[in-house]
């Protein structure tokens, strides 16, 4: 029976936007969680993931609506389709959570991450590092005679690729922000 042809909505308000939950392939999803910016709210969200055995691949959080005091938490998580649905409804149950958006299924979205990459070297390595950074459109935000700090924005895959190229050229440290994501269009 397939009696339900119901309008899809965000999972917090409706149990009906269930995709097929019968698959068991592991998927990666990016969730945008809108929460009251109150004490302990991040602990609630993280505690839910650890307490119920869900994965967090990446996590970013900052207040995005100062007048209403709302923060946006962006979580990249992995799991089977049924686990992903369960994560969304468990998040939706938390009292300070206003809305949960699964950017991976709710239409096209853009994801970006910022990284700062420190490379130490002399001679050819240094020249090659700088040349590669130009190809990736990274900015030099600090430089000494023997080091660069590159600032790079892009998808996590782009940052991974850049980091791998820097490794033989004297990479010594990487700081990454985690993924911020937003849906495309109006």
């Amino acid at each position: 029976m397939n009696a339900l042809h119901l309008k899809k909505g965000s999972s917090r308000k409706s149990a009906y936007n269930l995709r097929s939950t019968l698959g068991d392939a592991i998927e990666t999803h990016t969730l945008a969680i809108l929460v009251d910016n109150e004490v302990g709210v991040l602990a609630r969200v993280i505690g839910l993931f650890s307490g119920r055995g869900y994965n967090i691949e990446s996590l970013t959080v900052a207040e995005t609506n100062h007048t209403e005091g709302l923060s946006r938490i962006t979580v990249v998580t992995t799991g089977t389709p049924s686990i992903i649905e369960q994560i969304k409804s468990q998040l939706g149950r938390l009292v300070p959570v206003h809305d949960v958006h699964d950017l991976t299924v709710e239409g096209p979205s853009v994801e970006r991450e910022l990284a700062m990459i420190k490379v130490v070297g002399k001679g050819d390595n240094r020249v090659e590092a700088l040349r590669t950074s130009e190809v990736f459109r990274a900015n030099v935000v600090d430089s000494t005679l023997e080091s660069f700090v590159f600032e790079l924005t892009g998808t996590p895959e782009k940052i991974d690729a850049f980091v791998e190229l820097m490794r033989p050229l004297g990479l010594i440290d990487v700081a990454r922000t985690g993924v911020a994501a937003i849906s495309r269009g109006g």
């Binding site: 149990a15 269930l18 049924s82 369960q86 409804s89």
Partner: peptide
Amino acid sequence: IDPSSINKVIHVDVPIL
């Protein structure tokens, strides 16, 4: 009344929240 109870353990054909 709790959406997280639906399809948590058993997949159901008609969920009613």
